[in-house]
Structure formats: structure tokens, C-alpha cells
């Protein structure tokens, strides 16, 4: 049994004529935190979305916990999986979005229980008690009856993290989780993520928070125009960039 949670080999993706991913190779070990950095349009979000099959990659191999994403290998052929199987795969991968995307018509508690009840078939009582546990973990136990519009951006994002964790995922994907937040609210979300990393969750984080990457990540990948330009330990990649592109990128974001 390999200790690779995510394994990408030569992953490509195009939107029409626009080649967004040009053959990405990446390995994330279990329990590791990986940060993807790079300018906008570099393909980091697209790659993240390919991992839980919100987007379908065109070619290459993408495995999550040893299983091919979206395909099944039989008789040396890749068979597309049925929507139901893909949904089951996705339920094991949590995702946190830049715009939070909480269900607007449900209150905080219902946002966290709906997936457990409807997708995993957990009983209402069990789902609620797990939801309350998670709300306490993200520091929002008093907000369970609130609707998303009544919360600040930081609070919404913490609920979104709790919603993803409620599915007991083996992998968490974060797509620029703090980019839509007011500066003073970024800290509370990063605190929750830091805590989550410490608990041993495997995480892939697309971020512009270099401080977070340096402190929490086990490895950092720098993407530019659909290609991984540099990768390695955060201190080496962020502290001692080898390519001119990364140097100029870092000078802009730091």
C-alpha cells in the first residue's frame, strides 16, 4: 500500500483551444500539507478541481488514495465511471471554495448535516451531534441557528470548512480560502486550517498566503502557465527561488 494520497502524472486539461494544464506531475503523501502558488490563470484552481472531478482532465493519470479519479482501469482500458461512483469518490474529498458557497437557504447546522444525512445516510441525531462538535472546533458553537447571510466572511468560511469535515474526508482541498476575506478576518480561517493540519489531515491549499505556506506546508509547488516551474520544501522554494519567474512572482505577492 502506497503512502501517496494524491498522485498526478502528466495531467492535462484544455478549455477549447486554451491549454490550461500542460502535463502536471505531483505527489502528496498522507498527512502532508501541500501549497500550490502561482499567478492567476496559472492553472492551480483548475488542477484542484480536477482532483475531485469537478473538472474532467483530458489526459494523464490522477489517483486519489490509489484510485483513479473518474475512471476505472479494466483490461488496459480506462472506463469512465458512472455519476454515482464519481459522487461516492467526491464524498471522500472535502473542498473549500474562495466564495464559501454555503447553502443560502439552510442555517449553519443544516449546512453541516445535509451531506451526512443525504449522502452518507447518517441519522439526524448523529449528524447534528457531529455538526455541533465541528462547530465547536471552528469556534462557532453559538451560531448554529444563523443563516449564512447573517455571518461575516470569516465565519462563513469556517462553517464551510466544518461542512467539508462533516463528511469525514481523507483529503481536503482549499481553493484560495482567504482571498475573498477582509484582511482582519484572514487570521481566524488560517488558524482553523493550521489546527487541521496539525491534526494530521492531508491538505492541498491553493493560496497567496506565503506566511501560511512557509509555516504549515510540507511542500510548495509553483505553477505558471499550466506547468510546475518549481517545487520543494517551502523554505527552499520561497526563500531561495531558482527561476526568474518565481522571483518576480514572490516580489509581487510578498
Amino acid at each position: 500500500m502506497s503512502d501517496h494520497m494524491v498522485e498526478a502524472r502528466g495531467v492535462t486539461k484544455a478549455y477549447g483551444a486554451l491549454q490550461v494544464l500542460k502535463g502536471l506531475d505531483l505527489v502528496v503523501r498522507k498527512g502532508e500539507v501541500t501549497c500550490l502558488i502561482g499567478p492567476s490563470g496559472s492553472g492551480k484552481s483548475t488542477f484542484l478541481r480536477c482532483i475531485n472531478h469537478l473538472e474532467q482532465h483530458d489526459s494523464g493519470v490522477l489517483r486519489v488514495d490509489g484510485e483513479l479519479v473518474g475512471y476505472e482501469l479494466r483490461n488496459n482500458k480506462l472506463y469512465e465511471r458512472s455519476p454515482k461512483q464519481i459522487c461516492q469518490q467526491r464524498a471522500n474529498i472535502g473542498m473549500v471554495f474562495q466564495r464559501f458557497n454555503l447553502f443560502q437557504h439552510l442555517n449553519v447546522l443544516e449546512n453541516i448535516t445535509i451531506g451526512q444525512e443525504k449522502v452518507k445516510g447518517v441519522s439526524e441525531a448523529a449528524a447534528q451531534s457531529r455538526a455541533r462538535e465541528l462547530l465547536a472546533r471552528v469556534g462557532l458553537e453559538s451560531k448554529e441557528k444563523s443563516y449564512p447571510v447573517q455571518l461575516s466572511g470569516g465565519q462563513q468560511q469556517r462553517v464551510a470548512i466544518a461542512r467539508a469535515l462533516a463528511m469525514e474526508p481523507k483529503l481536503m482541498l482549499f481553493d484560495e480560502p482567504t482571498s475573498a476575506l477582509d484582511p482582519e478576518l484572514v487570521g481566524e480561517v488560517l488558524d482553523v486550517m493550521r489546527d487541521l493540519a496539525r491534526s494530521g489531515m492531508t491538505m492541498i491549499v491553493v493560496t497567496h498566503e506565503m506566511g501560511f505556506a512557509r509555516e504549515v506546508a510540507n511542500s510548495v509547488y509553483f505553477l505558471d502557465q499550466g506547468v510546475i516551474e518549481e517545487s520543494g520544501e517551502p523554505n527552499q522554494v520561497l526563500g531561495n527561488p531558482r527561476t526568474e519567474r518565481l522571483r518576480s512572482f514572490l516580489s509581487k505577492v510578498l
Partner: peptide, 26 residues
């Protein structure tokens, strides 16, 4: 909002569940 559909999809809801539980109520 399309983000609602993505969020529902990301927690493993099927298209029909997404329609009934997330899109239609909103």
C-alpha cells in the same frame, strides 16, 4: 449561483439530489 451547485457536488450529492435539495429550494 453556480457555486451552490459546485458545493453540493463537492460533498457528493448526485445531480438529482442537488436539484431537489439545493437548487429548487433557492
Amino acid at each position: 449561483d453556480e457555486g451552490q451547485i459546485e458545493a453540493a457536488t463537492s460533498i457528493g450529492m448526485t445531480p438529482s439530489q442537488t436539484m431537489r435539495m439545493v437548487i429548487l429550494p433557492q
